[in-house]
Design a protein around this nucleic acid. Structure first.
Lengths: 340, 340
DNA sequence: CTGTTAGCGCCTTCAT
DNA sequence: ATGAAGGCGCTAACAG
């Protein structure tokens, strides 16, 4: 930085204090003085040093967004929603990726104990079982909002969808279309979200009097090639006629496997998945997806967070926003209709 | 913040300076002292205040990434590449979206004159014609790397692909497959990137002795519905038999329009596009794309930036890393082969 | 090897 | 309505 508040003060024959107040549009400074200051600031192209300000005020006008993955329609749309609100509030946001790795998540949250950010939006990694690192943040009273992959144990604001119901409806949809052996592919069995989706799957089976078979459940990792092989193995071994992919990444892999095996979809195999693929309606064969309203969820998460950042709240606001996912059936590549 | 370097110093009967040095692993402090300090820091769960440090050192260990769009395979993979390098260097990154809006881009760059970040990676918005806001940053000697949508006028590091050649090859591919009237859909006619792609398109036409027709060029905006209508209009009006979509967003829209018009692809219409769609190989009909190596480009951009951030470089490094895009022909939904 | 001192740029009592 | 002074937490001379 070259030109500071001090430069302005000297240039205008004012005290530093007055200039500072003028820049903050304080009521206790003469309008005329304000104008002089602003004008000079413009002329000299003055920009306040955010770090000096953060240090002094102990707040950074910055939030952190921690997500497991970014190259993914769900999270990138969520980011877009978050950024929209963040921008409106005049904040900045830092992005951190855990890549589904608990160790990274811990390292990141530890870093954030430094007070670098005023608040945090976090979607847990699929490996996160212990949450003590989150307790640390929570105990420091850093406002947090859990996003999609929420943490049940901690009482903070949360934004998520009707996972149980959606999974149940989607599974029922498969069953009602003739599936008997439905594989369930997930990324985690540690998250509460995973549990809810799985429960929905089980509930649908139960309703239709199909026995739940542990052997049809596949918990995948982050290695695409490995997932491919495991999915391929399970499909052949168990002669599946239906697939429920509980995350976007596994949707594409499942598709690829079916194509590779020469399975005709939907004749030999029906697929349903949580997924926000932009091209779902152009895929061949058509894909029935459970769409989460990522953008709106992102906006809501940021809004909740900012409610906790305003100094007027003496106590943290804890709210839970439950969004509805939409089950989109695509029976052909042109017909697209939401299911109940 | 509760516990600071001062607390540690008091607790250990050391001076603040010594503690600070120990924490930075300075060579001029006794190993024993270092260990004591580190141990106490761990015990008290001390975290250095990044803003105090930034203020003092006049560097923030933070960079800004300015992109026009995030819900998009190209930019989200690029971000992933950037984050990988950023993480390795122990930096943080702020994300800013321009949403293809020059005004926003100007506002953001103005903000960044405050010294909030040590360096900037930027992909210009499609509306950016004037670049005076970038000159301001450049004149302040803030290291910048232009990414993909580069700025020719400013002498800084740049990362981009062989746009001319790729566009030429793709267009030739269409022509050699029988297309006579190839529509060219773009988002901008202001960027140098747009110009290069367009030149490639023209060069291919010329080589094949097809007259360039201005009327087949459509410069779209950010309104999806409007783009849809304009594309639809042009296809019908000009009876196109081929489409070159120069950005990912227009690829999907073009597809939708063809489906809507009942055009059979590739019989009635052949399409080629710059696009990093994850599902390109699953689309029906198959899509021939020009894939940009987004992840690698992101890593390279960040690496170039960091080379300029090390204090050992007295003068800015300017490098241009031209990456090769890969033209992928997909004649059926299973066959995928790179073209020359 | 350790301590003392002087700020980085800004905000905020407290005084006038 | 304005000014003076102190300090946010940390680092970097400069001493010793």
């Amino acid at each position: 930085m070259e030109i500071t508040i001090k430069t302005l003060a000297a240039e205008l024959n004012l005290s530093i204090a007055t200039v500072s107040r003028a820049l903050q549009d304080s009521h206790e400074v003469a309008d005329k003085t304000k104008r002089r200051v602003l004008e000079m600031a413009g002329k000299l192209n003055y920009h306040p040093n955010p770090y000096a300000s953060s240090l002094r005020k102990q707040k950074s006008k910055t939030i952190a967004v921690i997500i497991p993955e970014i190259a993914n329609n769900f999270f990138s749309f969520a980011l877009k929603g978050i950024q929209k609100v963040v921008e409106k509030e005049g904040y900045n946001f830092l992005v951190y990726l855990t890549e589904e790795d608990l160790e990274k998540e811990i390292a990141i949250t530890k870093q954030l104990q430094s007070g670098r950010v005023d608040g945090i939006i976090i979607a847990l990694s699929s490996q996160t079982d212990s949450v003590s690192h989150l307790w640390d943040l929570h105990n420091m009273k850093i406002p947090m909002v859990f996003f999609d992959r929420v943490c049940d144990q901690i009482d903070a604001s949360k934004v998520y969808t009707n996972n149980f119901e959606s999974a149940m409806n989607a599974t029922s949809h498969l069953i009602e279309n003739g599936c008997k052996k439905i594989g369930y592919f997930q990324l985690s069995n540690k998250l509460s979200l995973a549990e809810r989706r799985m429960s929905g799957y089980k509930a649908a089976l139960e309703t239709h009097q199909i026995a739940f078979d542990e052997g049809l459940v596949l918990t995948c990792g982050t290695n695409v090639e490995e997932n491919y092989q495991r999915i391929k193995g399970l499909i052949s071994e168990k002669t599946l006629d239906g697939i429920f992919a509980s995350v976007e990444a596994l949707t594409i892999t499942s598709y690829d496997v079916c194509k590779g095996l020469g399975l005709s979809i939907p004749r030999d195999m029906k697929i349903v998945s949580f997924s926000n693929l932009a091209t779902a309606h152009l895929l061949s064969p058509p894909l029935t997806t459970i769409n989460q309203p990522a953008f709106e969820m992102g906006m809501e998460a940021a809004s909740l967070l900012f409610r906790n950042l305003t100094k007027y709240n003496a106590y943290p606001v804890v709210e839970k926003a439950e969004f509805k996912s939409v089950l989109m059936a695509r029976e052909s590549s042109v017909e697209v209709r939401p299911l109940p």
